[in-house]
Design a protein around this nucleic acid. Structure first.
Length: 479
DNA sequence: TTTTTGCTTACAGAA
DNA sequence: TTCTGTCCAGCAAAAA
């Protein structure tokens, strides 16, 4: 009842705002001009009909109401109680968008334990092709594929990479999931173009770009009850895909067993997930306000629990040159570099701390491992260099994404030359760490929304996936 | 000092 | 084509 009152109040204020704005516009006599402008800008932005996920009708719930605002106990700072826990689940399932990817007859993703991929699947038709495809590439992850790199080494192609050659073809656009995408990853193998995304509703979507056997190569699953905070796939085990969720769950999608196994659950939120490139047995993830855990598959529990930050840890990344070196970014306004071999349990002290004026959304090591790129809501992208990461340059970049767009996170391309980050004008800014400025912007009339989360294909230079708050993925390619 | 409130804002889908 | 609902960020200012 309180929520409906709140909505009414919200609506009332919203209408009042609109009325005030209208009055102001009328006073300035620019209302009609603005209408014209708005009409012409939307005319310029053509609507592109692209591949899209499809939800199986029989898995749709009968009702989509009442609409209740979702707020977890954790975000309200309250201890979890069973009754509230259940109430929360009901709320989640009743949310209209979430309802589209949930079901009344199938098991809830809140059920602890393994969830068969068949039960988690929300698409039409069968997902057998996807499972076969993942198993196929996982057995031969490095067969020759296409001519993306023209048979050259990655370094050779990077040296010649011209940003102007990156293009977005309409066939490389798809709506993979409903709602806001929080994470996007390429399957890290050289012989496929498979993109995995996680959204706000707990859906995990797959897009097999090279699919030709079926209609569009898009597969939708609902393994989690809330926002997907991390996706981790290792080159050595492509058939095992870990996903984490704000509601405190980590699941492992095993394409061999066709199941989403529950590997970890907690009452605290999990905000980020990662794996060391040299260790397939451990998961590294953040939990609650500043907590950091290492979960060890061999013992089936957390072997390490540290408190590394004062606030949530938004990203965890490992240095390719020395995987003992790890970078974390946090809403406490810092990004830190740690040596995992020498972290003091009681008073963890980082090797290096990079200070921003506001929350830090990400901190990623460059491909060579010699630089670190940080992104903060203080409107800067930090580039940290030097033998001991002792030099920091702050590059101005508008990172005010507002409420509806996921925060920007600058990622590295295929070598240390470029950093890619979204911008609010439906473009992808390319920052040169050497020149310490934005040197190029990828733009396309096919990009109808703001790309906010990215991944660079680890083996195909120029292949860049950008994901939006509307569930779309744009795959830029070279040439 | 801690908690609450208000403000920002783009997008998809319904009407 | 226009309208409506979104709401799991993050911060600043106001209130407690």
């Amino acid at each position: 009842m309180a929520s409906s009152q709140k909505l009414t109040e919200y609506e009332r204020k919203r209408l009042e705002n609109i009325r005030r704005n209208d009055e102001m516009m009328a006073a300035l006599k620019i209302h009609s001009k603005a209408t014209e402008l708005s009409a012409s800008s939307s005319a310029k932005r053509q609507r592109v009909v692209t591949k899209s996920y499809k939800v199986s009708p029989e898995k749709k719930p009968k009702t989509q109401s009442p609409i209740v605002i979702r707020r977890s106990l954790r975000t309200r700072g309250m201890p979890p109680e069973y009754s509230d826990f259940k109430a929360l689940e009901d709320t989640v399932e009743a949310t209209p968008m979430a309802a589209k990817s949930s079901t009344q007859s199938n098991p809830s993703p809140r059920d602890l334990g393994p969830l068969s991929s068949r039960d988690a699947y929300r698409g039409t038709g069968s997902d057998k092709l996807l499972m076969d495809r993942i198993l196929g590439v996982s057995k031969k992850p490095h067969e020759e594929f296409g001519d993306e790199n023209g048979g050259d080494s990655i370094k050779g192609v990077c040296d010649r990479l011209e940003l102007g050659s990156l293009s977005l073809n309409p066939e490389n656009i798809a709506r993979v999931v409903p709602g806001r995408i929080m994470n996007v990853r390429f399957l890290p193998c050289s012989n496929s173009r498979m993109i995995v995304v996680g959204n706000k509703f707990g859906d995990v979507g797959f897009w097999d770009v090279d699919s030709s056997m079926d209609e569009d190569g898009i597969y939708l699953y609902h393994p989690h009850p809330g926002p997907i905070s991390g996706i981790s796939i290792q080159q050595q085990r492509l058939s095992k895909i870990f996903t984490s969720c704000y509601f405190g769950f980590i699941r492992l999608m095993d394409a061999e067993k066709e199941v989403f196994d529950l590997v970890y659950s907690s009452d605290d939120s999990i905000y980020s997930l990662s794996q060391r490139p040299d260790n397939i047995k451990c998961l590294y993830f953040s939990e609650g306000r500043g907590g950091f855990n290492i979960w060890d598959e061999r013992v089936g529990k957390c072997s390490t629990q540290w408190n590394l930050h004062e606030d949530r840890i938004n990203s965890i990344d490992f240095n390719s040159e020395n995987p003992n070196i790890m970078a974390t970014s946090s809403s406490d306004g810092t990004a830190c570099i740690w040596d995992l071999r020498s972290v003091n349990v009681d008073q963890p002290k980082p090797l290096r701390e990079v200070r921003h004026n506001r929350a830090v959304q990400s901190a990623y090591f460059s491909p060579s491992g010699s630089s670190l790129a940080t992104t903060s809501t203080d409107d800067t992208v930090g580039i940290v260099t030097g033998v001991n990461f002792d030099h920091t340059s702050m590059i101005k970049h508008n990172n005010q994404t507002g409420r509806w767009i996921s925060s920007f996170r600058a990622i590295w391309g295929w070598d240390d030359s470029y950093v890619f980050i979204g911008n609010m004008k439906r473009g992808v800014d390319v920052i040169s760490p050497a020149q310490k400025r934005t040197i190029f912007t990828l733009e396309s009339p096919h990009m109808s929304a703001i790309p906010c989360r990215f991944d660079a294909h680890p083996f195909n230079v120029g292949m860049l996936a950008g994901a939006t708050s509307g569930g779309q993925v744009y795959m830029w390619t070279l040439g």
